[in-house]
């Protein structure tokens, strides 16, 4: 049995596929590919596959991760990739298939790019800078145990922040994985507290998934 880790894109119209629907969608993709995917044992056997991180509805991604097992030891990673790509929905594509190296629990952070769009680009850029200069950024976060106030500033790593004609383009790393998951919309929420300028946030895209020492997860 080969343990496969596939990295796949979810772009264009595919960003409207919810996480729940993605499960069903992959099940059918596997069936169309006729790959010998491994089924769980027990009372109600089903094909086993799992996603490393959930992706918010409306986000694109270059780097979603899906693990599954193939029962044919002689099958090449290229064949697995190509057979899936031949039957994938529009907007989804397997970028690579490789043996699973690290445990899913090794994931520590994810990188997101997004754009803030406004009429007052210069004003908004100042507001973003002011916000980022704060020693702490408190937000209310819903958890399983109720609403909790957290400071997201220490865990937020801004990779780039550029003024554009229409607003601000940002890239940032946020905690991700089995412990803490921050969504970049949390930053958007906080920003709204520091400025009256109307703006919208769009083109969210997950561009990287990392483990300790900023190593790319694979």
């Amino acid at each position: 049995m080969i343990r496969v880790r596939a990295v796949f894109e979810k772009k264009g119209r595919a960003k409207y596929i919810s996480h729940l629907d993605l499960n069903r969608c992959m099940l059918r993709t596997f069936r169309r590919s006729r790959l010998p995917i491994w089924y769980t044992e027990g009372f109600n056997p089903h094909p086993y596959y799992s996603f490393a991180l959930a992706l918010s509805l409306g986000f694109e991604s270059n780097c979603e991760i899906m693990d599954f097992n193939i029962t044919d030891d002689n099958m090449s990673m290229e064949e697995i990739r190509d057979r899936l790509n031949a039957v994938m929905p529009e907007g989804m594509r397997i970028v690579s298939a490789a043996p699973q190296r690290l445990k899913i629990t090794a994931i520590t952070s994810a990188r997101y790019s997004f754009s803030l769009v406004t009429e007052d680009a210069a004003g908004l850029f100042e507001a973003v800078k002011t916000t980022l200069a704060q020693p702490e950024l408190l937000i209310e976060k819903k958890t399983k145990k109720g609403i909790k106030t957290v400071d997201i500033r220490p865990d937020m790593k801004v990779i780039s922040c550029e003024a554009t004609d229409t607003g601000v383009d940002m890239v940032m790393d946020l905690p991700a994985g089995t412990q803490t998951n921050y969504n970049p919309t949390l930053f958007v929420e906080v920003l709204k507290k520091f400025t009256q300028i109307p703006f919208t946030a769009e083109k969210f895209c997950r561009t990287g998934i990392f483990c300790e020492n900023n190593e790319i997860f694979s």
């Binding site: 264009g12 119209r13 595919a14 409207y16 596929i17 919810s18 629907d21 059918r28 169309r32 509805l57 409306g58 039957v87 929905p89 529009e90 907007g91």
Partner: peptide, 16 residues
């Protein structure tokens, strides 16, 4: 407007 509504994938096509 798609993200403002329920089950947006119903309104944008692109299905297999």
């Amino acid at each position: 407007h798609l993200l403002e509504i329920q089950k947006p994938s119903r309104y944008i096509g692109g299905e297999v």
